[in-house]
Amino acid sequence: MALNGRFNVKLSNKDPLESKKLTLKPLKDQVIVITGATSGIGLVTARMAVSKGAKVVLAARNEEALNQLVKEFSNKGYQATYVKADVGKEEDVNLVAETAIKEFGTFDTWVNNAGVAIFGYAMDVHIDDMKRMHDTNYWGVVYGSRVAVKHFRERGIPGALINVGSLFGDRGTLIQSTYAPSKFAVHGWTESLRMELEKEKEPVSVTLIHPGRIDTPYNEHATNYLDKHPVHKGMIYPPQAVAEAILYAAEHPKRDMFVGSQAKIVELLGTLLPRFTDRLMELLIPPTQYANRPSTPNKDNGLYHPGYGLHERGTNEGWIRSRSLYVKASKHPLLSFTLVGLGVLALTNSKRKKKTT
């Protein structure tokens, strides 16, 4: 009920680790807006969401891919609509919200996922390219956040705002050194907005997703200043793990969801041992960001124009995991803590027995 322009929200104490929880709808009863919906994480999230009964509003620049995706869902009996939109333009983002309300009467979760990348050393990247990247990666999140919060405030029913950050939004890096600041900005915006809304007891759950290295066409769509083709190398997680985290947060208020232990480890190392982390990344990061093959023409990138659509995976190299155990643990923190505790206890007892024998 509204009181002096604010909302009284009944808070839950089910999870002491997450303060001021709101009650969110089950996915099967939700309308979910997803930006960057025709590729990688956004595409997988959309497919996973409709399979669980949610209605979806898909936003991206590639209208042909959007149309094909909606037809795919329609043929399976799922409900979906789309908006051709460039999230770097506020009027396009407003149109996405208007379409959701026109088609479905409301929306319950807004996922700010659209993003573009640049591979290149900081002093080599053109300023215009940096600005364009921030239009999408940062301002797109700001526009989406504002329109979602406005809607949730007006209807007075709790909703979820989910912003997709990055491993490199917690820790700076080399080569993607102009991409990282755009994600730092997303992280700062999300934390600040969350605190303001929480202080005013607004009916909005705000979650920041921290993906590690994910196997998507991210590298294929990136602007590249290197003479070698950009890739992820090393331990890489599937986009399904990020989608799982996003859709869990759509139902369960969470402050943060880390996808892959690497994302959490890098955050902790950067905080606790910053100089050591600097040197470690200077040594290890550069060769993990390009392949031993020539770069494709830079004109094919998705910075200014839509990239190809309907591809979930990229051309990355390394150990591509089938899932993220860290996401699984985050969904069941008490059980995970108990299992770890039992494991440590069993190991300790085993060592004691060996000493006594």
Rank of each mutant, 00 (worst) to 15 (best):
V206E: 01
F184L: 05
A160N: 06
R146D: 08
G159F: 09
A85K: 07
L161P: 02
T178P: 01
H126W: 00
V96W: 03
F73W: 02
R155S: 04
R171F: 03
D129C: 01
K76N: 15
T106E: 12
F152E: 10
F73R: 07
S74T: 11
V142D: 00
G105E: 08
V142M: 02
L167I: 04
V206M: 06
F107R: 05
V96S: 04
H151S: 10
Y78S: 15
W189L: 08
G105K: 11
K102D: 13
L193G: 00
L208A: 15
T173H: 01
V206K: 07
H134S: 14
E200V: 10
Y121V: 13
G172H: 14
G172E: 11
M133Q: 01
I162E: 05
I162S: 00
V70R: 10
D124R: 02
A122Y: 12
N163E: 04
R132N: 01
V147Y: 08
P181N: 14
D129A: 00
K89N: 13
R155H: 09
L95K: 14
A114S: 01
S205E: 13
D108Q: 13
Y78V: 14
G156R: 05
I162D: 00
E154C: 08
E191M: 12
D108F: 12
N94D: 13
L69V: 03
V116T: 15
A180H: 03
A117I: 13
W110N: 02
T99R: 10
K150C: 09
Q79T: 15
T99M: 04
